[in-house]
């Protein structure tokens, strides 16, 4: 077909009046999703079973084997304290894969509640919250997190609460938009005419319809949560040493890059990149399936 004839978009011929195939089955058919989910599962296994898989104790220092290059004994080499990099990378999955999902979940729950209220009631409630959202938006997530973590002192709980709170208005804004779109549908006045109360309408009528949006938003935010946790750890305000952590280990070792000890930094960096990429593949697939 010549370029002049190509037309964007596809016509969807209505496929029977039959049940659409289950979303997860469509997902399972996407190679991108399978690959992404596989990598994520691998890291989750590391997070849960890290102490069983890791060849060494991630905290055990071997003073005779400092900065050892990758070899048969230490597949990914050792760090300046002689700790096994592979073991630290495996164990490092745990904190980040706990903190990021919990923070996102907190943000998603609060944000959904807030978004439903903003979108459904509108008016002053909406205006006030929208201002606050905009103010939070005016600052990069990392910097706000940073500000609060510095003020309160770093701990896993602080990270979860702070990132969760920062995500709340962001997710609320997305949910609000989705609710506003639903608000134009006639099933809402129909429900009001049955005497349904606002809380019921929000939870039983609107929520099921905006759920796909929330799912997509959750996966997208999860990516940013990992981003934020890793960055904060790198800056020294996340998971504290000596606990194995990818961002923290990079921060501790990148100064030695110039000396040629690249493995201590590269492998944790690749670990972060692989989690993020895997998550992206999953998110992208989910988005495609939900929007088709």
């Amino acid at each position: 077909m010549s370029a002049d004839v190509a037309v964007p978009g596809e016509v969807t011929v209505a496929h029977a009046y039959a049940a659409p195939p289950a979303s997860w089955r469509l997902l399972a058919r996407k190679p991108a999703f399978v690959a992404g989910a596989g990598i994520l599962l691998l890291w989750m296994a590391c997070a849960v079973l890290g102490h069983l898989i890791a060849p060494y104790d991630p905290l055990a220092q071997q003073l005779l084997a400092r900065n050892a290059a990758p070899s048969g004994t230490h597949l990914l080499g050792t760090d300046p304290l002689g700790r096994d990099v592979l073991s630290r990378v495996i164990s490092g999955a745990r904190d980040i894969l706990t903190i990021a999902p919990l923070a996102t979940l907190l943000g998603a729950v609060l944000g959904t509640a807030l978004g439903l209220i903003m979108g459904y009631f509108g008016g002053i409630v909406d205006a006030v919250i929208s201002r606050i959202v905009e103010a939070v938006l005016a600052l990069p997530v990392v910097i706000v997190a940073f500000l609060f973590v510095v003020a309160v002192g770093p701990s896993s709980l602080t990270l979860i609460v702070v990132i969760g709170f920062i995500f709340t208005p962001l997710i609320a804004r997305t949910v609000r938009t989705a609710v506003l779109i639903e608000g134009q549908q006639d099933y809402l006045p129909a429900a009001r005419l049955l005497g349904e109360r606002p809380a019921y309408i929000m939870i039983a009528e609107i929520l099921p319809n905006v759920l796909p949006v929330i799912v997509v938003e959750f996966t997208v935010r999860l990516g940013y949560a990992i981003f934020a946790v890793a960055t904060l750890s790198f800056l020294g305000f996340g998971v504290q040493q000596p606990t194995p952590d990818w961002g923290g280990d990079i921060a501790a070792n990148y100064g030695l890059l110039g000396a040629g000890y690249w493995w201590e930094t590269l492998f944790p960096a690749l670990a972060i990149a692989s989690v993020v990429m895997a998550l992206n593949l999953v998110t992208d697939s989910i988005e495609q399936v939900l929007s088709s």
Binding site: Y224, A230, T231, A251, L257, A269
Partner: peptide
């Protein structure tokens, strides 16, 4: 684009330095 936007700067930065 998606990958780039979610890989933290310090990760890509380190790869670049390397």
């Amino acid at each position: 684009g998606l990958a780039g936007s979610t890989v933290p700067e310090f990760v890509s930065g380190i790869v670049l330095i390397l």
